[in-house]
Design a protein around this nucleic acid. Structure first.
Length: 377
DNA sequence: CACACGTGGGA
DNA sequence: TTCCCAAGTGT
């Protein structure tokens, strides 16, 4: 985009934008959501929306696995809008942050209802879609529609802080405001805003890496502009953030079969962890439960423990214990929405991720509590 | 606005 | 193996 009359970008910003964009043109990874559809001048806005939502807080390698399948199943906003929430969750299962799937589903319904089935190009309209925040709206507006909108994600933040050698002990809020301001200035200096924005993220994801891996400065197209590199401080910036504490919760999951060998499953509540997904009937508690207490809770005569394992989340550690009711005992009364399901039916449900292991390993014998790495090979 | 929300990869 | 880490959106 050409700058408004009377204002021309600072020469350094223009050189940064030019050098980075040129590097991207020759170094960009070939990713499915970057390919325009055959016979189309630009990439499909709906594909870009799905990809951007999937990429929120999620690594590219993970999204590569899910994106083609999701697009295959829901090829258009209308197809996604008409789908049921359980189908959408099932297509998202294993990808994490499941609220994104619901919000994307709602966004598709809004696109169908309010935008004639077409993803809008206006940044304000994009921002109004469920699950589309400042970053995602900017990414779609710039990358798909070439509006000169700034974007700041984790990669961009790190690249900008190093580029400007910004070593301040400031509040996250202030740093955030600075990064958006700087991103705005730079994108205004770019000839193609979408190319520049995507290049900024690509640089952070492939060259200007976080501290442990360290940036590969000799390969960097911005090394001659970089204040941190000039000072030899590129590995120290940005300063590490204090990490959050982790709490521990206990989930006791019980395997109960009916006379035909089907397993009892229940749906999790509509909010919170693994919202709306399915699991073996589970008692959650801050401390471990004893076998008699668990049997009492589920209203069955007795239970024996089959396995234990720990599932790690960002701010929480979930200690699972898996229990079974001896064959022939009567099933418990209903509490949450529950039903018996065959293994084949269970495999098609949106399962809370740890329960994929708990329930589907029931097709064969459940492995004993993990000890050494003796079992594999 | 501090907090909740998943998962896999790399040191 | 085990520990540490990343960083968008909505409430």
């Amino acid at each position: 985009m050409t700058p408004p009359p009377g204002t021309s970008p600072p020469p350094r910003d223009a050189r940064i934008a030019r050098d980075l964009s040129a590097w991207f043109a020759r170094s960009a990874r070939d990713l499915p959501w970057r390919r325009p559809l055959p016979g189309h001048p630009r990439r499909d806005p709906y594909h870009a929306l799905v990809a951007e939502v999937m990429l929120q807080q999620t690594q590219v390698s993970r999204v590569l696995e899910y994106f083609p399948r999701f697009i295959g199943r829901f090829p258009t906003p209308a197809a996604l809008a008409e789908a049921g929430e359980q189908q959408v969750l099932a297509a998202w299962a294993g990808l994490g942050y499941y609220r994104r799937a619901r919000l994307l589903h709602h966004a598709a319904r809004a696109i169908a209802a309010d935008h004639a089935g077409e993803v809008p190009s206006d940044p304000g309209l994009l921002r109004a879609l469920p699950g589309v925040g400042r970053y995602t709206a900017g990414a779609l507006a710039s990358i798909v529609f070439e509006h000169p909108e700034p974007i700041v994600d984790g990669n961009v933040r790190r690249v900008l802080i190093r580029l400007e050698g910004r070593d301040l002990d400031e509040t996250p809020r202030r740093e955030e405001a600075w990064a958006w301001q700087r991103a705005s200035e730079l994108v205004a200096a770019a000839e193609a805003p979408g190319v520049f924005n995507e290049a900024l993220m690509e640089l952070g994801a492939t060259v200007c890496l976080p501290s442990p891996a360290r940036p590969d400065c000799p390969l960097c197209p911005l090394r001659t502009h970089c204040r941190a590199a000039e000072l030899g401080r590129q590995a120290d910036l940005p300063r590490p953030k204090p990490r959050a504490r982790q709490s521990v919760v206990h989930h006791a999951a019980v395997l109960i079969r009916d006379g035909r060998g089907r397993l009892l499953v229940e749906q999790r509540p509509g909010r919170g962890l693994w919202a709306g997904m399915w699991q073996a009937p589970t008692l959650e508690s801050p401390k471990p439960v004893t076998a008699p207490a668990l049997a009492r809770w589920f209203g069955v005569p007795r239970l024996r423990r089959l396995a234990r394992f720990t599932h790690h989340l960002t701010h929480r550690e979930v200690r699972f214990s898996v229990w079974a009711q001896p064959e022939g005992d009567a099933p418990p009364g209903a509490g949450a929405p529950r039903r018996f399901a065959t293994i084949r039916q269970i495999a098609g449900l949106p399962l809370a991720n740890p329960h994929r292991r708990i329930l589907l390993e029931q097709a064969g014998p459940l492995s004993p509590p993990r000890r050494r790495a003796a079992s594999s090979a």
